[in-house]
Design a protein around this nucleic acid. Structure first.
Length: 209
DNA sequence: GCGACAG
DNA sequence: ATCTTGTCGC
């Protein structure tokens, strides 16, 4: 595979990313993530009831990986297996929280946006470290946040999701704006650094492998 | 050319 | 992401 071809594929998908206020009511929210062991990839979707954060469904799928990890091309490594897991869900979520970036990406199309466009549903990117952009360090108290800028654009929030822990990065994936994304993340925090959908998907992706 | 670089 | 020893705090 040629890196320039991959970039063009991302640019094509990027043109379809739509950001708007999330006006629909969220009943079910999903978190997804993948874990690796050698050549194996295990992808997980955890579905939670948004209001109570109760888990209502967990699905996973182990398969073989061919694509390597290349910064900026994470979706080409993880999205295929995640899409196959998504197909098996009996409860379809109204929004998906993805472990990785949304539009805070070199070409504006992180894995969260990528999945959102392909599935045509709202997605939010929640990353544990920065890929692109600059920001001021938010204060150390839970709830503090600062805007992340990239190429003169607002692309994410650096959010202190728990007192005295490393900040996380919240960016819109698809069909949602930045402030709505931040709001959803804040509403799904339960005393841990990571919001519940991501924390649980992260946990089960490793447990089932 | 050099540094940076989600998971 | 994964591997891995040690430490801090509730």
């Amino acid at each position: 595979m040629d890196i320039e071809v991959l970039k063009e594929k991302q640019n094509e998908l990027r043109r379809k990313v739509i950001l708007k206020p999330l006006d629909t009511e969220i009943k079910y929210i999903a978190g997804c993530d993948s874990a690796f062991r050698g050549e194996l990839i295990n992808s997980v979707f955890v579905i939670l009831e948004y209001k109570t954060l109760r888990v209502v469904e967990i699905k996973n799928l182990v398969s073989h990986t061919d694509f390597p990890y290349i910064p900026g091309f994470l979706a080409f490594r993880e999205a295929p297996n995640l899409l196959n897991v998504y197909k098996t869900l009996s409860i379809k979520p109204d929004l998906i929280m993805v472990d990785g970036h949304g539009i805070s990406h070199p070409r504006g199309l992180g894995i969260a946006s990528h999945l959102g466009v392909l599935l045509n549903i709202p997605t939010i990117g929640v990353a544990k470290s920065l890929l692109v952009g600059k920001y001021k360090k938010p204060c150390m108290k839970k709830g503090c946040s600062e805007i992340v800028y990239f190429n003169g654009k607002v692309v994410a929030y650096a959010l202190r999701s728990k007192d005295d822990t490393q900040e996380i990065f919240v960016s819109p994936g698809h069909l949602i704006d930045l402030n709505s994304a931040l709001s959803v993340v804040l509403n799904t925090l339960r005393g841990y650094r990571l919001p519940e959908p991501i924390r649980l998907a992260d946990y089960y992706s490793r447990k089932f492998l």
